[in-house]
Design a protein around this nucleic acid. Structure first.
Length: 893
RNA sequence: GGGAGCAUAGCUCAGCUGGUUCAGAGCAGCUGCCUUACAAGCAGCGGGUCCGCGGUUCGAAUCCGUGUGCUCCCA
């Protein structure tokens, strides 16, 4: 078959994706094999995959494909997350922009219909991207966190935890997002340092005089219900029992005393606004203060503020400052470094707000979750880098605010009667039945009708659904103990970003332990963050995040996967640079061209070497060497992959293919011009290449499958993605009477000598085409006899002679303990030859001194391990003989 | 303020249990090659007080302390 000049990924990727799908290779059913289960961290259904996802999905696919090729029943469950805040915001925006509809004008049902339409329209994008990337997921198992069964699971868990007394409803100070108009959990708030201002304001005292307070938020003064000072602060001790007036609105508020106030901060007098600050709220509770909420849910001033009602909080701040200044209340402004909380979702400044919400008590669940990780039942990779963070969070965990004032999500299964009593139940009927039962057991009159019940309008935090993910994708919550959950759970490894260790990982562990009684996964692999070349976080606003599909179009999926993995040290952030993708594309071409070369050989006339020839070692040497090298590399790769050091394993494979296979092995077995191919070499080359693409397949699935099918005719069903790895040979297995390690050291010598002589040729400015006669002075003639013809070919020598002394009028060089003399057609006097040798000699003499010093040190000889001392002695011997050889060479010049 | 991590070639990083597989890889750079698989390539080469200082040790890029500079998490 005619192969294209370069590898063309586009058609090939489509072809194999279709083929794999039609063969259902990635669809898993429980069977006798051990399961290797991975659940995808569900991306936001309406989002697109960014480079962080790309890294995560690639890592997962590598692990899954490797497992599938290693005897496991691999199951990778894809899916997506409904992302309530983000998606609801997008739908609201779309409705306003495209249809001119306001959410407020829609019923809940109508809105949800639009939201599901939107999900149908855009939800496919990420699935398409996952497929394009070559992810071997089981498409029969796609799960969405708002699927019917999933919805039921979330409701079931809510009810269960409520009945266990872990979920409660109450008024607390929470983080309020005025743009999304919903509560947020503590984890959804991001704090940023900003340069703020501290305003000094004058409050008039009832009995004459004034008191000055300092505040960052003058727009909240209308919510002030006290001024607080430290009881030990002499400046204010005379104010016991007195009152002050809030500027502009003249509310009369008490002066209270509490050690909480730091006399050194500001003026030492603190205005107390219980509705708008968590610390003030606590003070308010302690001193029984009134709570005046001066803000509406959208961040505008409420009626309670009395002035500037309906104005946005930041606009109001300006107006109020102007007013205060005009009326003489504003004494001074000073620069002040502070921190502000921003909503992770909408980006606006979060408002602390008192609100009635649903909470989950986390304390009880935290204990077992901590234990599972600390005791090593769940292993975190890399190393224990995140153990401390995990521990700290769980040891200091706060209750989780799980209600959100949104529609897109699981509606809280709580029902209220007209008189305000509450019942938690899955359906109106059940709620009604329970209320009835309650009334009966209390001997009360029961006149309520089911329609009179009102369901809680709020939905649950999205993480309250995704923490069930490893279970409910197998219906583990809705159908406990079913065959699939038993087979696939606990899952094998979770691959995710370190940024969601609290949001998701810790909570999944809690839920898994609570509902399955065991951990949800055995290993957690945290990938680093993908940054741009300059080290900046990738973000939409910076526009520095490339489009995945464009990258795949440009470089091919394999190259994208290669590029992101090669620059991705385990657990560390990676700086994304398209140059790495280029490297991947070049690698594809390299393999493609090796395939072309082998293809050409297949067309050429070949000869079958005689049995004697094969036994005589020199002809079989390259095959035996590569077999040894391959086995060695395989062992390394296996070990690295087990340790999740995927980037390092890929580097080994890259060098194995490019350097050892293409640059050395193929060159060694390449037939001369117009010469027939050694059939034995050809056969082996094909087998080796087959093994190479197999090893590489988890990283670069498309090109490897393609090459696999070009190497020889394959029967139907013989596809690389399901081909099982062969067993590893013993590291010192025997080939033609010689051990693998012998081949490896011979190979090392051969490479060194070839490079050394090529270097000498270059330095002597010999043209590549100019042939030489090579004279070798060595005590190890036997080794050279085996590799003699390879050496000759590789350094363009027409002949190789063994000599016992220096050869005059040649270019001399020393490699290891061997002397080489390059005899050229035109004898060349090489000036810098002497210099080079002298430099080498100087270095070796210095080296010898250091070794001798070591060996002369009594304490070293006594205390160091014997093998270390032995090695030093060998180094000394080596250096001595090298020095001798160089001295001889120098003398001959 | 509390905690964690990082600092090695021009750039991005490997370097696990201290000792030639210990100073490495890939890019970039330089030199020479359009050699009949591949110029998106081939062959070769040069680059480093392993952040500063102190300690432990026969021996430190590696372990400990300290200083400096970055990054992240939490309050």
């Amino acid at each position: 078959m005619e192969l294209t000049k370069n590898f063309t990924p586009a058609e090939i990727e489509i072809k194999w994706n279709q083929h794999w799908k039609s063969k259902q290779y990635f669809n898993s059913k429980p069977d006798h094999r051990p399961a290797f289960t991975v659940v995808i961290p569900p991306p936001n259904v309406t989002g697109v995959l960014h480079m962080g996802h790309t890294l995560n999905e690639t890592v997962q696919d590598i692990l899954v494909r490797k497992a599938r090729m290693s005897g496991f029943n691999a199951c990778w469950v894809p899916g997506s997350d409904h992302a309530s805040i983000a998606t609801e915001a997008k739908v609201v925006q779309m409705l306003e922009k495209e249809k001119g509809i306001r959410k407020a004008d829609l019923s809940r049902e109508e809105f949800l219909r639009f939201a599901f339409e939107w999900k149908e329209k855009y939800g496919g994008i990420i699935y398409n991207q996952i497929e394009r990337l070559g992810c071997s997921v089981d498409w029969n198992r796609v799960t969405f966190t708002m699927d019917d069964h999933y919805y039921k699971a979330v409701i079931k868990v809510f009810i269960d935890l409520y009945q266990k007394g872990l979920i409660y409803r109450g008024a607390r100070m929470i983080n309020w997002d005025p743009a999304a108009k919903t509560a947020l959990s503590d984890e959804e708030v991001e704090y940023k340092d900003i340069q703020g201002k501290l305003y000094h304001l004058k409050y008039a005292l009832e009995n004459g005089g004034e008191i000055v307070i300092a505040t960052q938020r003058p727009e909240t003064i209308m919510g002030d219900t006290a001024i607080c000072v430290n009881p030990n602060d002499n400046r204010y001790s005379h104010l016991k029992g007195s009152y002050a007036f809030v500027p502009l609105i003249n509310r009369r508020i008490p002066i209270i005393f509490d050690e909480y106030v730091d006399p050194a901060f500001g003026t030492g007098a603190l205005k107390v606004t219980p509705a708008h600050d968590i610390n003030d709220y606590n003070l308010g509770l302690k001193h029984n203060l009134e709570v005046v909420d001066t803000l509406n849910e959208d961040g505008t001033l409420s009626k309670a503020a009395q002035i500037f009602v309906g104005m946005d909080r930041f606009k109001a701040r300006k107006q109020i400052l102007a007013d205060l200044q005009e009326k003489g209340f504003l004494l001074k402004e000073e620069e002040y470094a502070t921190r502000l909380g921003y909503s992770q979702r909408s980006g606006v400044v979060v408002e602390p707000r008192i609100s009635t919400q649903w909470f989950l008590n986390m304390k009880e669940m935290a204990g077992p979750a901590l234990k599972a990780v600390v005791e090593g039942d769940i292993k975190i990779h890399p190393g224990d880098k995140f153990l401390a963070t995990y521990r700290y969070w769980l040891e200091n965990v706060k209750d989780w605010c799980i209600s959100r004032q949104l529609w897109w999500g699981q509606q809280i299964p709580a029902w209220y009667t007209p008189d305000g009593s509450l019942v938690v139940a899955a359906t109106r009927e059940e709620a009604f039945a329970e209320l009835k039962a309650r009334a009966v057991s209390n001997n009360q009159n029961f006149t309520l009708q089911p329609e009179q019940l009102n369901q809680d309008q709020d939905v649950l935090d999205t993480w309250f659904s995704s923490w069930l993910w490893p279970m409910e994708v197998f219906n583990g919550i809705t159908q406990p103990g079913n065959a699939e959950i038993k087979y696939y759970y606990p899952t094998s490894v979770l691959v995710t970003g370190q940024d969601i260790i609290f949001f998701w990982v810790a909570r999944m562990i809690m839920a898994g332990l609570e509902y399955e009684g065991t951990k949800p996964f055995s290993d957690v692999y945290f990938t680093g963050m993908v940054r741009d070349k300059q080290g900046r976080k990738m973000s939409k606003s910076l526009g520095n995040s490339p489009d995945l599909l464009e990258l795949i179009d440009k470089y091919g999926a394999d190259a994208v996967r290669f590029g992101i993995m090669i620059s991705s040290p385990a657990g560390n952030d990676l700086l994304f640079d398209e140059a790495a993708l280029e490297q991947g594309r070049n690698f594809n071409n390299k393999m493609w061209n090796a395939l072309k070369l082998i293809g050409m050989w297949k067309e050429k006339p070949s000869f079958i070497p005689s049995e004697q020839d094969l036994q005589s070692s020199s002809s079989a040497w390259p095959d035996n060497w590569f077999r040894s090298r391959l086995n060695e590399a395989k062992a390394e790769v296996n070990q690295l992959m087990q340790q999740f050091r995927l980037s390092e394993a890929l580097k080994i494979l890259y060098s194995l293919v490019w350097d050892d296979f293409c640059s050395w092995y193929l060159e060694w077995i390449k037939p001369g011009f117009e010469e027939p191919v050694n059939a034995h070499h050809l056969k082996n080359a094909i087998v080796f290449f087959e093994e190479l693409v197999q090893l590489l397949h988890p990283y670069m699935p498309f090109i490897t499958e393609e090459i696999y099918h070009h190497l020889t005719e394959r029967k139907d069903g013989d596809d690389l993605c399901i081909r099982q790895f062969s067993k590893l040979e013993d590291q010192d297995f025997i080939l033609n009477g010689k051990s693998a390690s012998t081949y490896l050291s011979e190979g090392k010598l051969l490479k060194e000598v070839i490079s050394g002589i090529r270097d000498a040729r270059n330095k002597a400015q010999l043209k590549p085409k100019e042939t030489i006669t090579l004279h070798i002075n060595t005590t190890e003639v036997e080794i050279y006899k085996t590799i003699r013809h390879l050496l000759a070919k590789q350094v363009n020598a027409k002949d190789i002679q063994f000599v016992k002394a220096s050869v005059p009028n040649t270019i001399g060089t020393v490699i290891g303990k061997h002397q080489f003399y390059l005899e050229t057609e035109q004898p060349i006097i090489q000036e810098n030859q002497k210099e080079e040798l002298a430099k080498e000699l100087e270095y070796l003499r210095g080296f010898l001194v250091s070794v001798e010093k070591k060996l002369g040190n009594e304490r070293f000889v006594k205390q160091a391990k014997p093998e270390i001392v032995e090695m030093e002695k060998r180094k000394k011997e080596d250096a001595l003989s090298k020095i001798k050889v160089i001295e001889e060479s120098l003398a001959a010049l």
